[in-house]
Computed example of a mutant assay.
Amino acid sequence: MAGNAAAPTESNPPGDIPDNQAYVPYRPTGSGFTIKVPEGWARTQRGTAAVFTDKLNRVRVETVSTSSAPTVASVTNKVVPQLSGQVPKFSGAQVTQVKRHAGPVVLLKYQGDSAPDPVTGKVVRDAFERYAFYRQGHEVDLTLSGPVNADNVDPWRIISDSFAWQ
């Protein structure tokens, strides 16, 4: 009967997005782009940003009008100082240019503390990936965040690679 042993219980770190997560297209009216977001996550609108949340994870999509494309230098010199003043315990900023299906984008990786949980007051150390997509005067900033050590590499890649200009 050794062949009938129970499979070990899977233990995922807090904030781990399941591999079987389904995704649905999100296309804000008049935005000129579409992106896949996790199905069933709560959505809130904050100005020009849509924020999708589930437990300890967030997907933030914001549109910005700008006359020039973001560069590694512009993100390093403008965005990093802004975020360091807004994100508690901001650290580890790394700015690079990467390729996604929509083309080259500027990627900013960093860490920071989450806002305290409104019920428990607990703060979580989060990892962030912020992608800056640009086309013809329109920038879309995609920020993915979740607990440090959560295995969200594949889900974040699915989301960032799904971005497409219309």
Rank of each mutant, 00 (worst) to 15 (best):
I35T: 09
D117K: 08
T63Y: 04
K89N: 11
P116R: 06
L83W: 04
T9Y: 12
T34E: 15
R60W: 01
I159H: 01
D126W: 03
L108M: 00
V51T: 15
A49P: 04
G15S: 10
V119E: 12
T120E: 14
P81T: 00
A69T: 10
P118I: 12
K122T: 15
A22M: 12
E139V: 13
S114H: 01
I35C: 07
L142V: 14
F133S: 06
V72W: 05
Q136D: 15
Q45D: 15
D113Q: 04
K36H: 11
P38K: 04
G112M: 02
P147W: 05
W165L: 05
Y110L: 00
M1Y: 06
D19T: 14
V105E: 08
N152F: 00
T96D: 14
N149W: 01
Y110T: 03
T9C: 12
G112K: 01
N149Q: 05
Q94D: 11
R100Q: 11
A6L: 15
A6G: 13
F52Q: 10
K99A: 14
A73F: 02
G85H: 00
G3V: 13
L144V: 01
E10I: 15
L107G: 02
K99L: 12
Q45S: 13
D154R: 11
K55R: 13
K89S: 14
V148C: 04
P13F: 09
Q21R: 12
A2V: 13
S11W: 09
Y110I: 00
L56P: 08
A49V: 03
H101A: 12
P18K: 10
S65A: 11
S91G: 06
K122W: 06
N152W: 00
K36V: 07
G32P: 02
Q82E: 13
I35N: 01
Q166C: 00
A7G: 07
F163L: 02
N57V: 11
V51G: 09
F90T: 06
T34V: 14
A93D: 03
P81R: 01
V105T: 12
P116Y: 01
P81E: 05
G32S: 04
A164T: 14
S160P: 05
K36W: 08
P14F: 07
S114I: 03
Q82F: 11
P118V: 14
P81V: 05
T143S: 15
D141K: 13
T34L: 01
K122E: 15
I159G: 02
P70N: 11
E10G: 06
T34M: 02
M1S: 14
S74P: 07
V105W: 05
Q97L: 08
